[in-house]
Design a protein around this nucleic acid. Structure first.
Lengths: 225, 225
DNA sequence: TTAAAATAATAGTAAAACTATTATAAAACA
DNA sequence: TGTTTTATAATAGTTTTACTATTATTTTAA
């Protein structure tokens, strides 16, 4: 399946829209590859420019700094996941099935549909896991939030929370449970690979077991009482 | 209450033990203040040295870089929380009460006992929330983990997981639920203050409501079936 | 009292994180 | 087709960060 997936991200994130030019698209695709390979801390515009190839100054004409570029990538990721969720729960009737589908989409498996030839979805998933929380864990968070840059993340959580409410209208913490589900799906995947004593997926390293854990947690909370 | 709280942290974290000298202790207390004020990204050894006051080179004789210093602070924090948990669940009989006590200790309130005159516990709590996950969300994680630097975090999670097992020996995901509880307590506190649409604590900004949410989540998962 | 250790002072370096200026090439448009 | 606008390239910086090295001085310990 090959579906055109276009989203317009918050324009306060960039000086020039990277989606509008060839070199802009290269900045996105190559930064995904490079950040997933060497990590956000080691990533610099100089290294990126050398790979594209272009100059450091050209990259700066698109993004003010690497933090804004990271937020752009993560926003894209959340918008993409939200789109997948909407697409996949569309024809489901029971809220229980919808929640199971959401959990399945949040945990990566290699069967994921590719929506773009250029963007390396798995690399982007790794960035979302290992670097995603760095977008908001910063002293800049309130200022960035005023500029609406976390909207894609919030919209995904709201969508998930609305399904929780559909499943159990009495539940008081639908938003918190949604953000916890999203964060936990990432953290547990990271722990499985790097800090196995913090989880229970050591033996098989099977993402399906993470999904099982997330289901006990979510349905446990929603079924309470 | 004023109790002497001494812990020896992993020596691979420092060149010279900061706990052994006056200037070393100042590095710890002032870095806690400075990082909580300006954030980890803006924090530099030069700024720290200016405040102590000493020279940048002296700070480098204690810590190889600011990342190692951050891990030192976070390790201290987890060891401190674990000590508090052990101390407070010691005379409790029911696992249910123990879990409630753990959740209460994980979420900051201003009644927390101070175990040190020098260290600003609330500032350290903010650092743990906003910077804690940066200790392991790095390409260095596997190398650092080999050097045992995440042991205090793991030991806290193991302790919590053992109480979960006591409450329900059948539960399969005690470690994952423990790390999820710890991470979630921090993230929800951060969301409450900075990204309120990701949680349900907007009105009162009352930490007690976070505790309520965490209890529905934990007991929900453990009581399942 | 002397040796050893700790710290201070000084002076660097390499890389990161930018900015500014001018030139050239490509696209748009008239 | 020629002209204007826009995009990119090339060049050349600056400031700050993240260190390292050396030597001098002070403090501590034997």
């Amino acid at each position: 399946m090959q579906i055109e997936f276009k989203i317009k991200l918050n324009s306060s994130l960039f000086h020039r829209d990277p989606d509008g030019t060839e070199i802009g698209k290269k900045i996105i695709t190559h930064s995904i590859k490079l950040i997933s390979e060497i990590g956000y801390e080691q990533f610099t515009f100089k290294k990126l420019a050398a790979i594209i190839p272009t100059t450091e100054a050209t990259v700066y004409r698109y993004f003010e700094n690497k933090h804004k570029l990271l937020i752009y990538l993560i926003d894209y990721y959340w918008a993409f996941i939200r789109y997948q969720v909407l697409f996949n729960i569309n024809n489901l009737q029971s809220p229980k099935d919808k929640i199971r589908t959401i959990i399945d989409l949040l945990v990566w498996e290699d069967n994921a549909n590719s929506f773009s030839t250029d963007i390396d979805q798995k690399a982007l998933y790794y960035i979302a896991i290992a670097e995603g929380s760095k977008t908001f864990l910063s002293k800049e968070v309130d200022h960035l939030n005023k500029n609406q840059v976390f909207v894609p993340y919030k919209e995904l959580c709201e969508l998930i929370a609305s399904v929780f409410k559909e499943y159990n209208p009495e539940y008081q913490f639908a938003n918190s449970l949604a953000s916890t589900l999203v964060e936990t799906s990432h953290f547990q995947y990271f722990f499985m690979h790097h800090l196995p004593r913090l989880c229970d997926f050591t033996d098989k390293k099977d993402p399906k077991v993470i999904e099982e854990f997330l289901e006990t947690m979510v349905f446990g909370a929603l079924d309470n009482r």
